[in-house]
Design a protein around this nucleic acid. Structure first.
Lengths: 340, 340
DNA sequence: TTGTATGCGTTATCAA
DNA sequence: TTGATAACGCATACAA
């Protein structure tokens, strides 16, 4: 049913190797046979079988991308960047979502190896998980690039400077007169969540301000959690004046709930987030993260490895984060302790 | 380097076919050899080669998903649904974005066929394009399911009732007293854009109201176009009282621009969209579309075909759209013609 | 410039 | 219950 190079060989009276050669643009064939082969391929409706080609050539022309949540703008912009560069290289990408699930991440990596992808880009879970599967991956010799660093694992990595981002927002809130600041931590498997929180605590302590544990929310993920937390804050009699959310998705959820509860942002509660997602009308003060650029960079580095264009040691690149001040933070008058 | 079943055969003294058999859970092997094989596979660190398996078994365990824009919540929710069902079937998905580009769509379909995916889910461009590549695809016998119908092409299809959605929003605006209604059409390759606009025009005419061409914007796509249009509307001296946007992304862009220009929504201009994306705080009146459910349904149908579970004729399913009234539409007093 | 032979790692069909 | 052996479709080293 399916026409193969053997069929073309039969039709033209040439050998399979000749067909294969001209189809792969190799030199050393007379124009006459080239035309004959091309014409026959066209007429028979030949469609190269990349599976067979992959088996023989040990290169599939596919890469794998393992992210956490395709629904989050953060990841779909990374995805977009990766796709774009992959396309430029004639590559196709398998998209896998781990959804903050450790086992899913392991399964996806193994599936990608079994599918013999030429390379892998992974945004790994970094906290409260084991990393054995990455050391196993390393052994397979499949090139991979990570968004994040895994202790003791040598490979190319990209990172966002989450600690610095956390510092910037905290300092911003402080400079606007806030001291009763709440914090919504992201998924417990997220290192970004950990770093941002650490920066928050450090910066607060640096100013001699105690972090109020009642205002710290743990393990939030997605807009639903953001809304829950917003509602809880709305119900507090003794509310924080500002709240730092792990990401814009959570922040938007929180703002939604706050508004629903009849409160104003920033008049009643100031809210800031991370990621600078564009798809919202709310003037959220946030931290911008170059996700699309990172996606492209991740892919470039991976293809450098795949094509052996980079032979030197592994590279580790840190992207900066940048505070974007809009109007979701209220400027507080400098109040005396007693008035708080 | 890579361990194969031949290596396991050598190590155990058994035949390749035996190894293959037990590894694929086939019956008819003694428990003793089963254990021997499994143990050896484990010890040698055997990783099945899905490429070789695919070549031999003519099934790759991969499907392709071709959408228009991974960055748009509409498509990433469809993607999420597809991924989920694919995962349940032990399948992996190639994600391709056509980006409203006809040639890209063609190229992606061909790439998927060359990669011998077991099936394909496609959200095709439906207007101002040719469909030859779909008839070619049909010839390949690769099962596929479409989000949308292609004239003369028999295959499983899902659709959203865009005409009805368009009718609903238009009637809503009319019922709120609006008559000077603007319309932002989506991409010119989009049939949804065409249907929604047709419904708008018909419904307006049904009420004896003329559509003002000055308020109709063509070929808009993405938040940037939405903002452009918002700015243009803000600058008009003679403005529509309401504007229907092709989707929420455009609507959000328009609202953003309107607010930036110092106008109020809905006080100065009412805005409605389509898709009901959750990731925004703005109380946008919109039309909800079951994208996630559609993604799952598309995948279910595809797997029915792949596994031959469905042998009957092709199915055509239409999903309903539902108006979600929030507060981005102002209620107008019934004005006399002269006062308008 | 073209052809032959072999291998890629599996699955599948028969025999044994 | 197990083992040879032939596909699967292509690439490639080598021979002609």
């Amino acid at each position: 049913m399916n026409v193969t190079i053997a069929d073309i060989a039969k039709a033209t009276g040439l050998a399979k190797s000749t067909i294969s050669g001209v189809l792969n643009q190799k030199s050393g064939f007379s124009e006459k046979t080239r035309q004959k082969v091309l014409k026959a391929a066209e007429q028979l409706g030949y469609v190269p079988n990349e599976i067979a080609r992959g088996l023989s050539s040990r290169s599939t022309g596919s890469i794998g991308l393992i992210i956490k949540d395709i629904t989050n703008p953060f990841y779909n912009h990374i995805t977009k960047g990766v796709q774009e560069i992959a396309g430029e290289h004639g590559y196709t990408v398998f998209l896998c979502s781990s959804g903050e699930d450790h086992q899913a991440e392991i399964d996806h990596i193994q599936a990608m190896v079994r599918k013999r992808v030429d390379g892998l880009i992974i945004a790994p879970l970094l906290e409260e998980v084991t990393f054995d599967h990455f050391f196993e991956l390393k052994k397979t010799n499949v090139p991979f690039v990570l968004l994040g660093k895994i202790p003791g694992l040598s490979c190319d990595t990209y990172e966002f400077d989450d600690y610095d981002g956390g510092r910037q927002v905290t300092e911003h809130l402080l400079s606007m007169g806030h001291t009763r600041i709440g914090f919504v931590r992201g998924p417990k498997t997220s290192k970004a969540a950990k770093m941002r929180y650490a920066a928050f605590v450090d910066t607060m302590k640096g100013q001699g301000i105690e972090v109020d544990e009642r205002f710290v929310f743990h393990d939030a993920n997605g807009i639903t959690d953001g809304m829950d937390i917003g509602h809880r804050i709305a119900e507090m009699t003794d509310r924080p004046s500002a709240i730092i959310c792990f990401d814009d998705v959570i922040a938007i959820g929180a703002v939604k709930a706050l508004l629903e509860a009849g409160l104003q942002v920033p008049e009643d509660v100031s809210v800031v987030g991370f990621d600078d997602i564009e798809l919202t009308t709310f003037p959220l003060t946030t931290v911008s993260i170059p996700t699309y650029e990172a996606g492209k960079a991740l892919a470039w580095t991976l293809f450098d490895r795949i094509f052996g264009r980079r032979v030197s040691g592994f590279q580790h690149i840190m992207f900066e984060q940048k505070l974007i001040v809009r109007s979701s933070v209220r400027r507080l008058h400098h109040l005396k302790e007693t008035e708080g």
